[in-house]
Design a protein around this nucleic acid. Structure first.
Lengths: 140, 140
DNA sequence: ATGAGTGCAAAGGATTTGCATCGAC
DNA sequence: GTCGATGCAAATCCTTTGCACTCAT
């Protein structure tokens, strides 16, 4: 994460402790947390940080293409510091969100241009089902 | 739409003029409107209808599996009376949402089970790009 | 007639904004 | 020291809820 500093400098942005902490946390987790969750998580180490700062920072990180925004159909957004194109899967029972690893559907962007008059840049692919724990629980 | 009546009757629900109008409008449009848009559209013919009724009706229609909810990454939801699984495409410039017709990715639900420990029921696939009009405008 | 549905207004939750203060450069 | 960033509170937007009244059955 040495180059973070450079990237921020280039854009005349300041790499504040808050911004660094939020990015570092997002890089470290696979939970796809909401803004609120990030706030709760960092509250302990950064007790003065406000929720507004979390939102503002996330907006900044998205503009820098360091973070992507997800919307699985909940009433809020979730955030992912893995900006490579990859599908997500949502547990209809417990609300957990995971990455689907080992697949790449980037080719779909070109493919789909045969079926529409749009030009296509990106896509989001969300699967819905039951996570291992909830499958198990349902089987009882 | 004769069977609507039956379907509602089975569930002990009333097919009120408001509910009928909202469903009929959704069936008739390809615009994937938001609740607000539906409300605005029907205001002329149903001047006493409230936005709360639109929301409540949409919830009911979703439970009946007559309508599906979309979230393209905007701050609100959109609604589609085509409940067959099909991708949507969002214009990054004007915000228009269209169906992608002629493709079916239902097979992905099974496929993806090889890459995750979840069981998979459904998916949503959203493409992002430029609609024909916005492509044209950008070319000037 | 009766219980579900409507419409209104108020509440709720997520996110944004304005502004005085703070702190990274 | 400067200007962008923070933190707080208020504001905004979307959606839901409570409740008295209405109306489809």
């Amino acid at each position: 994460m040495k180059d973070l500093n450079l990237l921020f400098k280039e854009k005349n942005l300041k790499l504040t402790p808050q911004r660094y902490a939020i990015y570092k946390y997002l890089k470290s987790t696979k939970n796809h947390p909401s803004a609120e969750s990030i706030y709760e998580e960092l509250k302990e180490d950064y007790p003065t940080m406000s929720l507004a700062t979390v939102y503002k920072t996330l907006k900044t990180l998205i503009e820098l293409n360091l973070v992507q925004e997800l919307n699985v159909g909940e009433d809020n957004f979730r955030f992912d510091a893995n900006v490579d194109s990859h599908p997500h899967i949502f547990c209809l029972s417990c609300g957990r969100v995971d990455d689907v690893e080992g697949v790449n559907f980037t080719f779909l962007n070109k493919e789909i241009e045969n079926y529409t008059d749009y030009s296509v840049d990106t896509h989001q692919l969300y699967f819905y089902g039951l996570c291992p724990k909830c499958k198990e629980r349902g089987r009882k």
